[in-house]
């Protein structure tokens, strides 16, 4: 039994790694008032570029660099559209995802024709620590990208704290752009930075999927993990540590799908898949605790007096 539990935990944490990365960036972006639904597209493009880069260069690290740049590129498009051109964030987000899906599928037709496995990342168990029963394998037997995910999530959760001026500035921009502007804060710059940060972390998340999880690129490899990252932010009620917790929990819920049959438990998979969204729904509707989205979420900034 404890072996199964251990497997669920370690599988859950592994599955949570891309979520942690993507939702860390998404959280910053939403706190700054930009709803990046395109995080899905950023991840997908990142996964594609990561796989392509690793294939062409034969180096997984080069693949990660490509993924980072690709995520940033999609983010730049999103930022230009939603910050500078003040286009509707929902339309541009969903459409950027469709664009990413179309472009990567098209690219995969031309590029990945032999279906061979890629150079990727292997797990790097930390001696002694990974021997701890139950949580050892979950926490200390990750790939390099997995450890990076922990670090990024922790750094962002810490950095968003209102003890720091930048944490305050991000919140001010997300709550009320006009006020932030009158305080002399560079509103557009902050929003650009937040969206680009999401691009970077989502690109890494994509690389994690393609290079550390699957070791290949397949059409729509993300399959909604990006949306799940947005959902984790909502379920975490736009606060850092609860979002991290939500990601871990969602990862475990996913791992349960694979582990449940092993212990002879028949839980219909669709029910498990749906759990995160139901939790987020309960959280956002205030049925579980109090929740409030940043007031300026999806509101474009224009200095009209």
């Amino acid at each position: 039994m404890s072996a199964v539990l251990e497997e669920i935990l370690s599988g859950g944490v592994r599955l949570a790694a891309p979520l942690l990365l993507a939702s860390a960036g998404e959280l910053v972006s939403e706190r700054a008032g930009v709803l990046n639904l395109s995080v899905e597209g950023m991840m997908l493009t990142g996964a594609f570029a990561g796989a392509a880069g690793a294939m062409v260069t034969g180096s997984a690290v080069a693949g990660v660099a490509c993924a980072l740049v690709a995520g940033l590129l999609v983010a730049l498009i999103q930022a230009i559209l939603s910050v500078t051109l003040r286009a509707d964030q929902i339309v541009t987000g969903i459409t950027a995802n469709a664009l990413a899906l179309g472009a990567t599928t098209y690219g995969a037709r031309l590029l990945f024709t032999d279906g061979s496995s890629l150079e990727g990342f292997a797990a790097l168990p930390i001696p002694v620590l990974s021997e701890i029963p139950l949580i050892g394998p979950a926490l200390f037997e990750q790939t390099a990208l997995g450890y990076l995910a922990f670090a990024v999530a922790a750094a962002l959760a810490f950095g968003l704290s209102r003890r720091f001026t930048w944490g305050l500035a991000i919140d001010a921009v997300g709550e009320d752009t006009l006020t932030a502007d009158r305080c002399g804060l560079p509103v557009r710059l902050i929003r650009y930075a937040a969206v680009l940060l999401t691009g970077a972390t989502a690109g890494l998340a994509g690389a994690d999927l393609a290079l550390a999880e699957v070791h290949a690129f397949s059409d729509n490899i993300t399959g909604g993990v990006g949306y799940l990252a947005v959902v984790a932010v909502i379920a975490g009620r736009w606060r850092a540590w609860p979002t991290v917790l939500a990601c871990l929990f969602f990862g475990v819920a996913q791992a349960l799908q694979f582990a449940a049959p092993a212990v002879g438990l028949h839980v219909p998979a669709p029910l498990l898949v749906t759990i995160p969204y139901v939790i987020a729904l309960l959280a956002v509707s205030g049925l579980v605790g109090r929740s409030r989205a940043p007031s300026g979420l999806t509101v474009p900034f224009a200095r009209t007096a």
Binding site: L168, A169, A172, D176, T179, R182, C183, G184, L185, S295
Partner: peptide, 30 residues
């Protein structure tokens, strides 16, 4: 506004320009 502030001009607006979800100290630290 940033340039006005840098030039040494301060405004007190008719409609307040304080972020209402932040504390007074946080607003000042901005």
């Amino acid at each position: 506004p940033k340039e006005a502030i840098a030039a040494g001009v301060a405004m007190v607006h008719q409609h307040f320009s304080l972020v209402s979800t932040l504390t007074v100290a946080e607003n000042l630290r901005l």
